[in-house]
Design a protein around this nucleic acid. Structure first.
Lengths: 236, 236
DNA sequence: TGGACGCTGCTTACATACAAGACCTGCCAC
DNA sequence: GTGGCAGGTCTTGTATGTAAGCAGCGTCCA
């Protein structure tokens, strides 16, 4: 249906698995057998295997040769690495914001924030809007293409945020901070925008740290040991 | 021989291809047929194909379905993206340098600079030392693990540096700048170190820009067209 | 009771066979 | 000469077969 059966099976499998890992539908430690996945997804082992290799390169999956593949544990070190990277990139971008802002991007960002205010906002929808918002901020400075590198590096950070979400008092505060950042940018006060963005990103990270201190078992160090093999039947 | 026939064929093929692409031994536009590579490297198509997929994800190779795979052209936009990223990361790291520096890393950096001064320094050897030096700077701040992300993103930047090298007056100036950076760090003058590092990175980039203006054909935009298929027989 | 050994069943790693599409080349008609 | 069509040959994408290795469990022996 629609336009494209032109997409390769591998792309579809890769994106499916990646989404399920990031949303914790496939939880850390879950077993990812090539055979099982191939059968469940209705393809052969080849595209599944290639997807697992790519996810392994991203750090979302660990492949133990001749033993098995597993969703990687949420590694506190990798979370911190991603936090450092995104903060460095997003703040550096603000230094390059031009005097006159692209009105299309501004309009898009405003529309995005509108949707973040909608009542009963689904949490996955919020994350999608959050991603688009931060990507948009990068585009304002002409560094939009750097976002893909950040995205590829922050898988562990994203999973950590979702882990902590059950214990969070909603995302309203983050939405407020988004508004403050955009307002500062539009008013031309880049220095204030930088400060707002930094404290926003730090708030997100502090939230994660709080979760980690409360539930350290969720952040079990990835020490190279093979997780116990449990069958996780979450394939529709 | 040695310790490990434990390394997988895929790792070997991936690293071999990556090195040859980065050193321009496999020049932009070169054809990378899975069959030819497999025969030349003495393995089957499978590990070759998996390597090409990974290199494609890194942007070093373009895969045209059912048409062919080619070393990607050096894309000026991607060079600029990598420059932005590395500058953001390396400068942000300096903000987190602790008061007392790790003496082991300092010793390693000093030894590294010694080697950069050796007369008759091979250019590839210089690049290796340069990589290790910048990685070491990151490690001083505790953000050493972020280097791998930078490495994965700066393939186009590295190739552009090598393209321009034929027209450069040696690397002595860069070595001097390395010394200035390390001296500033050791003396505790982080502000000065930041300024030195920034101007160093900008100098590298300006060098590339000069090359691009002189020889724009080397930076032909990667417009999605398939390069002409030339057979490149550089397999020992 | 405890430890070692071997079998069984699983896994990934690699090799190969098959499918489907794109490009090029040469022929043919006009 | 020129445009178009057809076929052959290349490509990557996918499926499947084969190999090799780890783990876990049961058994056997001390």
């Amino acid at each position: 249906m629609g336009q494209a059966s032109t997409r390769s099976n591998r792309s579809v499998v890769y994106e499916t698995l990646r989404r399920k890992v990031l949303t914790l539908e496939l939880p850390p430690g879950a077993s990812l057998s090539e055979n099982e996945l191939a059968a469940a997804l209705g393809v052969s082992r080849t595209p599944v295997r290639e997807s697992l290799i790519l996810l392994g390169e991203e750090g979302l999956v660990r492949v133990f040769p001749k033993v098995g593949s597993f969703v990687s544990r949420v590694d506190a070190e990798r979370v911190a690495d991603a936090q450092f990277l995104r903060e460095a990139v997003e703040l550096a971008a603000f230094d390059d914001i031009p005097g006159t802002l692209d009105p299309d991007v501004i309009a898009e960002l405003r529309a995005n924030l509108e949707q973040q205010r909608e009542p009963g906002l689904d949490i996955e929808r919020f994350f999608a809007l959050d991603e688009a918002f931060h990507h948009g901020l990068l585009r304002l400075s002409g560094h939009g293409r750097a976002w893909s590198t950040v995205v590829a590096a922050k898988g562990h950070l994203d999973r950590a945020r979702r882990l902590g979400l059950h214990e969070t008092n909603g995302v309203g505060r983050f939405v407020d901070e988004h508004h403050a950042i955009l307002d500062a940018v539009v008013s031309g006060d880049i220095s204030s925008a930088r400060a707002s963005l930094r404290s926003h990103l730090r708030a997100v990270f502090d939230d994660i740290e709080k979760t980690r201190q409360r539930s350290p078992e969720l952040f079990a160090a990835d020490d190279g040991t093979v997780p116990v093999r449990r069958s996780i039947a979450v394939w529709e």
